[in-house]
Amino acid sequence: MAFHEIRFPADLSFGSMGGPERRTEIVALTNGFEERNTPWAHSRRRYDAGVGLRSLDDMAALIAFFEARAGQLHGFRWKDWADYKSCAPSGVVAPGDQLIGTGDGLRVEFGLRKLYRSGAEGYLRPITKPVAGTVRIAVGGVERFEGQDYDIDHGSGVVVLHKAPMMEAPVTAGFEFDVPVRFDTDRIAVSVASFQAGDVPQVPVVELRL
Results as ranks from 00 to 15, higher is better:
F3E: 01
E5W: 10
R7C: 15
F8Y: 15
F8L: 06
A10Q: 13
A10R: 12
F14G: 05
F14W: 14
S16E: 06
R22M: 10
R22Q: 11
E25L: 14
E25A: 11
I26M: 10
T30Q: 14
E35N: 11
E35F: 08
T38I: 06
P39K: 09
W40G: 05
A41S: 10
A41T: 11
H42L: 13
R46V: 12
R46K: 14
A49V: 02
A49Y: 00
V51E: 03
G52D: 03
L53F: 00
L53G: 00
S55K: 10
M59R: 05
A60W: 07
A60T: 14
A61K: 15
A64T: 14
A68N: 15
R69D: 06
R69E: 09
G71N: 07
Q72K: 14
L73Q: 13
A82V: 11
G91C: 11
V92P: 03
A94R: 13
A94C: 13
A94L: 09
P95D: 11
G96I: 03
L99K: 07
G101T: 05
G103T: 04
G103L: 01
D104E: 12
L106S: 15
R107T: 15
F110E: 01
R113S: 11
K114S: 05
Y116W: 15
R117S: 14
S118V: 08
G122C: 07
G122M: 06
G122N: 09
R125L: 04
P126I: 04
V131S: 05
A132R: 15
G133L: 07
G133S: 10
V135E: 01
V135R: 00
V135N: 01
R136Y: 03
R136P: 00
G140I: 06
G141A: 08
G141H: 07
E143V: 09
R144Q: 14
E146H: 06
G147L: 07
D151P: 04
I152Q: 03
D153W: 03
V158K: 04
L161G: 07
H162N: 15
H162L: 13
K163D: 14
E168Y: 13
G174P: 01
G174N: 04
F175W: 05
V179N: 02
V179Y: 01
V181P: 02
R182Y: 05
F183I: 09
R187H: 10
R187N: 12
R187I: 10
V190I: 13
S191H: 09
S194L: 08
Q196Y: 01
G198D: 09
D199P: 01
D199G: 03
D199N: 12
V200T: 13
P201E: 05
V205Q: 00
E207C: 03
R209F: 03
